[in-house]
């Protein structure tokens, strides 16, 4: 993710959570958080429980998020320094009376959102937690001419899978599958198809949903066996190597503890060594044992134009 992508991501997140953008450039965003975003991001559970219990109007926090530090500094440096504003009569009176003019303290923390920063990580996590399940309808591409015409829509189960290949090392892949509940057909790169169309949470006019041919559970097993077949065709040299390392290590442990066990004089000592050995073996399995884990990033029900 480069700085531009981060900028776009942050902006989209803030818009999705209905935050109020106070000021922005391609390098920074000054924002007043919405209530939802404040609860999500600022880690102030006590404040919010206080507000909730007293039914108070909350004051949400504002932030200055800088996405490109260098360029932002450059633009700030270019801007002319603001002339101090003329005092209003009230302020003049204050100044005469107290010697100072009280100013509202705008506490706007500034944060650099770079890849790897904890705030960006928090935004990622928040998006993942709040974008898990959707139910959407495709908006018709063309207006039907006849008001009584009705277009058939197919229900799809869309699943974005994360596949983890791990031993002491790790690699991941994203697989996006869509299963038509009408035909049971399974489509790869389903997410790409979704992003190319306009989707809305409401059922459009002049549309009818085709009857489902299969159940959701059936669709799930179709998706899983499809993915399984894909995964079977992969190269598992890494797993074989990990198994070999695992065996080698286990033999090494055996060689280390055997003489110790033989030397052990009493039962108690023997037991102790055996426990230690078991512990070490467990650790090595934990470290090297190869595994492929399939989890789901998010999923949804999509009603798309046409029957397929």
């Amino acid at each position: 993710m480069n700085t531009k992508q981060i900028h776009r991501f942050v902006l989209k997140y803030l818009e999705a959570t209905q935050c109020e953008i106070l000021d922005k450039s391609p390098y920074h965003i000054k924002v007043k958080l919405s209530q939802a975003a404040d609860r999500e991001l600022t880690n102030r559970p006590y404040y919010w429980s206080f507000i909730d219990r007293l039914n108070e109007t909350p004051e949400t926090m504002s932030f200055l998020f800088v996405t490109d530090e260098e360029k932002y500094e450059a633009t700030v440096a270019q801007q002319p320094v603001e002339e101090p504003k003329l005092l209003t009569p009230e302020e003049k009176a204050m100044e005469r009376a107290y010697g100072i003019v009280p100013k509202p303290l705008p506490r706007i923390p500034r944060e650099h959102l770079h890849f790897g920063s904890s705030r960006l990580k928090q935004l990622f996590e928040s998006a993942e937690n709040n974008g898990s399940y959707v139910c959407l309808y495709q908006e018709p591409q063309t207006r039907t001419l006849h008001p009584y015409d009705s277009r058939p829509y197919t229900v799809w189960l869309g699943i974005n899978y994360m596949v983890e290949f791990s031993c002491d090392l790790k690699r991941e892949e994203i697989h996006s599958l869509g299963i038509s509940l009408v035909t049971g057909h399974c489509q790869e790169q389903f997410y790409d198809r979704l992003t190319s169309m306009r989707l809305s949470p409401r059922l459009p006019a002049n549309v009818h949903i085709a009857k489902n041919g299969i159940s959701y559970t059936k669709a799930l097993s179709i998706a899983e066996s499809h993915l399984e077949k894909r995964l079977k065709s992969y190269n598992y040299e890494w797993a074989e190597k990990a198994q070999a390392r695992l065996q080698e290590e286990l033999e090494r442990l055996e060689g280390f503890y055997k003489p110790l066990l033989a030397q052990a004089t009493d039962e108690e000592q023997k037991l102790e060594i055996e426990q230690l050995k078991e512990k070490r073996e467990e650790e090595i399995r934990w470290q090297y044992e190869p595994r492929v884990t399939v989890s789901v990033i998010n999923s949804g029900i999509f009603h798309l134009d046409g029957i397929d």
Binding site: K12, E15, F124, A127, E128, G131, N160, L199, N298
Partner: peptide
């Protein structure tokens, strides 16, 4: 959930 959040989650 919102479609925009769904997309952001994938992007993340």
């Amino acid at each position: 959930d919102q479609w925009s959040m769904f997309q952001l989650a994938m992007e993340a």
